[in-house]
Structures are given as C-alpha cells and as structure tokens.
Write a protein that binds this DNA or RNA. Sequence first.
DNA 1: AGTTTATTTATAATAATTTTAAATAGTATT
DNA 2: AATACTATTTAAAATTATTATAAATAAACT
Lengths: 136, 136
Amino acid sequence: MRSLVNISDKLSSKEINPTMQRIKIYEYLYGNKSHPTVDTVFVNVHKEFPTLSKATVYNTLNLFVEKNLIQEISIEGNESRYDYNLTNHGHFKCKTCGSITDFKITKNVLNDTNIKGFRAEEQHIYIKGVCKDCIV
Amino acid sequence: MRSLVNISDKLSSKEINPTMQRIKIYEYLYGNKSHPTVDTVFVNVHKEFPTLSKATVYNTLNLFVEKNLIQEISIEGNESRYDYNLTNHGHFKCKTCGSITDFKITKNVLNDTNIKGFRAEEQHIYIKGVCKDCIV
DNA sequence: AGTTTATTTATAATAATTTTAAATAGTATT
DNA sequence: AATACTATTTAAAATTATTATAAATAAACT
C-alpha cells in the first residue's frame, strides 16, 4: 500500500495541489488495472470519503489527465475510463463480459505507419473480441 | 458516384433491408473520409431527405456497425464517429484543429503483442497529436 | 482577524444516445 | 383489391454522461 505522503509528493511533482480528495482518488486509481469509469471511481472513493461529490471526481480526473498523471481510455463511445498506467500498452475489450485487459506491445507501432510530418503525442491501441474466459 | 442499385445490393449482401433512408445514409458515408459524427450525418442527409429523423440515423448507423458494413470510431469519449472504410488503417486526431486523418499500417500490430488465447475481432489504432497543417 | 485564491459541493444545464409508442410503409394472404 | 402482418420510421420522452454555475468551504497570505 502506497503511503499518503508518497501520493502527495507524486501529485505535487505533477503540479497538482494535493488535497485530500485528490489523494484519495489517486490512491484508488494507483495500481488499479480495472480501468474504472467515473462512476466506479465515485462509488468506491465515496465509501471511504462520504462527503465527496461526483463533480469533484470529474474535475479531478480531468485535471489528472491534463497534468499527465493518468490516461483516459476511449475504447467505447459511451463513457470514459481511466488508467494509472502510462507506459506503452494496449487494451483488449471483451465483447462478451465487458472486461478490459492490458496487453504488452513489444514494438513501437509508429515505426510501421506512413505518418510523416505529424507530431504524435499519444498512442492508443484497442482490440475488441472475446477474452480467454468467455471463449466456449 | 455510386449508383443507387449498387448501394442497394451492397446493403442486401450484408442482410440489411435497403430502404431509401438507409441507402441515402450509406451513400453519404461511402467514400467519405471525414469520419462524421451522428449529427453531421443527420444534417447532411437531411438536406436531401427532409423527412429523415435523427432516431433513424442512430438506428441505421448502429445497424450498419452490427452488420459489419461500417465501423465506429471511439477516438474521443464524448461522441461516436463513423468510417465506411473497414480495411486495416489507423486514425490520427489533431488536438489543435480536431481533424481526423487516416494513416496506413504497414504491419499487423497483433503480431507484436503478447495476446494469447484471446479471439481478436477488431483492431483500433488511434494516435493523437498535432497535424502537419497545425505545426507552427 | 480579514482578504484573496483555490477547491469542493450541489444543482442546473447541456449533449449524446436510447427507449417508447404511434404512424407509415411494405409484404404476404386471402 | 381488401385485410392482416411485419418491418421501419418518426417524434417525443427518458436516460446517461458530462460540463457549467454559483454558493460554500478550505487554505494561504497579508
């Protein structure tokens, strides 16, 4: 378990004023591989922090994304998901159970494209299909 | 310009009953590289077909995606975009002007991942950054 | 303590999408 | 051709996700 003081420092290092709400939200996200939605973050952090409002969750997640502390996953059109993991990896969405799983990308995709003259800042690789557990 | 009878056959071949609304919508999408939103499709097809309703545009686009006639682009969390082009290619979104440009993928990304035991059905590669025209 | 600034909260407003149920169109049956 | 059945479209209402607003709270600074 990451200590509060470490989380606080991490936020500060990204120029984010470490309020208790922000600390609790990042604490929930850190190491969480479930790619939670805004609502999931709200419901879970709210349990420990009952005065937390949903607007704060939206504000905080947007701030974290802007400050490059977490990334936003747009694998589905309807709602955003969030990932504490900024290292290069892909996301597999199971069409049956809805789970989103990380996978490794062993090569830089950008090398195998014809993109030239563009400044690439973010790379998102999504694969959809049926996961191990759901294949009959 | 693709003839109506060809579009009609294309829809039929995908088990889509070729009504006039569906034909007009596919006619608008076919060859359109702008990755339009639902609203853009509605506004443009509505010009030529004033009785068209937005609900029909939603129904039709969802049907086209289900039947694998077009693909849905979820490059941004807030709204879905649609692409008639089903061949393997990536999408570049310019953070400055908002444009979405296709790019070629010269290698199958799936070969360079550690996905095993999953059944991959769709692959989406999104890159965000600044496009040629917007780089100062 | 009083003032400024940042943050949080609850609510209202907006935007995208889905649902519902009636209206229309198309097809099949007699 | 009239009737019945099925599919599709339409407009409106309902739902869901998100953003904007403004008051309340908290923190930082004279």
